[in-house]
Amino acid sequence: MVRTRPLTPYLFIAPLVGLLVFIFGYPLARVFDFSTRRIRGFDGPSVGFANFEALFADPVFWLAVRHNLQLLLAIIPLLLLSLLLAIALYERLGGWRIFRTIVFLPYILAIPIVAVVLRNMFQLNGPINTVLRSVGLEGLALDWLGDADIALWTVMAMIIWRESAFGVVLFLSRLLSLNEELAESAQLDGANWWQRTLYIVIPQLRGVIEFYLVLSLITLLAAVFSYVYIVPGRGGPGNATMILELYIYNWAFDKRLPGMGAAVSVVLFLVTIVFMVLMFRLRRQAAAEEVG
């Protein structure tokens, strides 16, 4: 610590505190306030929990919740796929650096761009179905985005395609920093590749796997707006890909009922608090390791 005049630290943190209060603090307080009012323009009368009652009575709300929950399933393929690819890259077979560069590419492309390109690829007469038909898998050439029963799964596949790229790089950078003596001595003891990977390498990734899980859960809950806004077109067909973010957007900005939008935001915020706590604990652990 450096000695300063008593006021100096407060001058240094003043802009930080101001900005965080302006963009996070005040809006978060207001969103709770708004959720109990019928807002027209800037303000409105208090209506108690009427917004929440209307919300819970709206089948579309439950549909959006269900879709968000369904998207959480993507966590399993995301984790397995990125772990597998990271381990494959870790073997440093020929050309692995180029492979790494390319595997990370999906993450560099912006979601709206990815969404537009993939949407065209998944059209009924698009290239994916063309390939499927040409190899005799006629039955698999589905209406990937037009069919309400499939559209959300298709969106999920797109999310997995882009977001696993990040997992690969995250896991790989941890793998490359591992101490290899453990795996080497296990090899001397006669452990084969599978045993070394399953029992020696993966357990050492526990921390980063936990971190990736929390991060992906937050992404799947609250950072998929760009996919559903563009891909099937605003949560369509019908409400087949409606999710909470878009539902907030619709209430607040299409129907111009900010009170309702705020009520949904409160629900989403309360859910993410759980994840904030998780994240916070992981960070604390990290800080403790740093000191120790």
Binding site: P27, L221, P258
Partner: peptide
């Protein structure tokens, strides 16, 4: 960890 969409309305 707070999603931006939560602050958007206010």
């Amino acid at each position: 960890a707070v999603p931006p969409v939560v602050m958007v309305v206010p």
